[in-house]
Design a protein around this nucleic acid. Sequence first.
DNA 1: TGAAGTCAAGGCGTG
DNA 2: CACGCCTTGACTTCA
Length: 303
Amino acid sequence: MEKVAVRVGYACLNLSLKDSFRNYRLATVEKKDEEKITEVIWHNIRLLREIIDYNIKHNIYVYRVSSDLIPFCAHPYIKEIYKEKVINNEEMYYHFTAIRALQEEHHLRISIHPSQFNVLSSPKKEVVSRSIEEINAQTEWIKALRGENVVIHVGGSYGDKKSAIERFKTNLRYVDESLISIENDDKTYNVEEVVEICEHKCVKWVYDYHHDRCHPSAENGVENLIKAYPPNKYHLSTGAPHADSRPHADYISATDYKHFTEFLTQCGIKEADVIFEAKKKNKAIFHILEACGNGYWKLEGDN
DNA sequence: TGAAGTCAAGGCGTG
DNA sequence: CACGCCTTGACTTCA
């Protein structure tokens, strides 16, 4: 059987670069501290550019942008700043253009994952409308970067999963479904439930190997689900202190990587974009490369 | 200057 | 109904 070709990536932070992303508090936004806010956003976009350059240099083509790249991006004042000081700024425009060109040239897969507070299945109207605002604001700039998708979870169950799923499906209409990917989570919605929603709504999904291990589907037909409706992306992590503990370990274990890639091969997957979710971020990629070689890699790592 | 506490946001289990 | 926990890294305050 043909081995799956893997493209690996990581999320948010790059531990090999000196700089880190900056942030500001709500109080700063409410004070309309334009100077500080602009400085932070510019810093973050410059760093993003630097990270993408680093990734390309190291043959890393999959990357998840921090949802805090533009903190409070749905806030009206931040929207204003974004329009006037980011989109209309020559240097920032240059970075956006450069990132788009790099994406095209290297077929990058850039995604974003709005945080846990964005819940489209909530019975509370305000929670849903805030979530829609936030998801749409993040979608706007991921589109400006020509990113691939916006990954979300289904949310809570509220003692009535069926109704929650119905609300989720309904509210999905208010976000850009063409960019959405739904990920199976480690507590509430397993692979089977996620695939059911995605097939029905014709949206993409993300298979999280570790979440599936912590919270498996009722039936053991995950392989068939993946064969029938393949995900567009994969998340891989190892638990700590034990492989099946929920918190993430520093690195991906060689055993997990091996089992995971063999599983994808069994599912008949030919190519897979995989995000490593490990505390050591980008370093977990080199760790696996050292431990397992590059037998599954589409392109050789040079580090 | 280093350590400890804090930070928009939701949901859930416990008492 | 109130509370702490989940999880995470940077910010902020305080010693």
